[in-house]
Amino acid sequence: MKIVVLVKQVPDSGAERTLRGDDNTVDRGSADNVINEMDEYAIEEALRIRERAGGEVVVLTVGPERAGESIRKALSMGPDSAVHVTDEAVRGSCAVGTSKVLAAAISQINPDLIVCGAESTDARGQLIPHMIAERLGIAALTGARKLTVDGPALTIERQTEDGYEVVSAAMPAVVSVWDTINEPRYPSFKGIMAAKKKPVATRSLADLGVPAAEVGFDGATSVVVEHGKRPPRQAGNKITDSGDGGVKLVEFLASEKLV
């Protein structure tokens, strides 16, 4: 079985993040860039499937050159190889464009299964899995907190607002996962050393047969008109409980007409 895991490099959600003033894209230069956290769970799930069913796991990333650091980190967890799509013309892509590039790269690899995170921590679109499935004409099982693979049959527990749904499909399919699905392994020293020698294929848009005009700023289907910082929230009144903290709290709520 051939499994592709989608890995996006994002600015660390634990630090301050900004958009650039010149072209409204994420300021990656000043950020500490990391693997999108949810994608580590996708990698782990793919590795567990490989352990049971055999086959290979290929990491796929669309992103600038420096995303290569995240690819090596992903490989140190255990995948076999990676494909890095990097092309100046991809910069500024909207989700429609990004999904086009991802779908083209996936078609070339021709996997049985695609595993990805349910959402990215920077844009939080939750769009890519269904967009890819729509483009490739394959099933999407999204928001999985549990995945069972039985031959070509896939069954997930899909997390919903008030519980879960059991959804099934046959491969080929896209499965997106939440962080409740497993506990990602830490890369071992051996894994880190091995990752340095694993093959990483670099692909340009031309290699994928995607016209540059259909992605990036040129092909974008939406545009950021302006952006700015919101003023940070101000701290209000703080009291120390000396027996009447609960009552004071309720007095505050009442004064704001909240109870």
Binding site: R233, D244, G245, G246, V250
Partner: peptide
């Protein structure tokens, strides 16, 4: 959390919360 709280109570929630619940009922 206090940096963004409009109202903060520094205290043990096991004391503050039951007292608040009671105060709402009293009201």
């Amino acid at each position: 959390i206090f940096e963004l709280a409009d109202f903060g109570v520094v205290g043990d929630l096991f004391k503050v919360v039951p007292r608040a619940t009671e105060a709402i009922r009293e009201r």
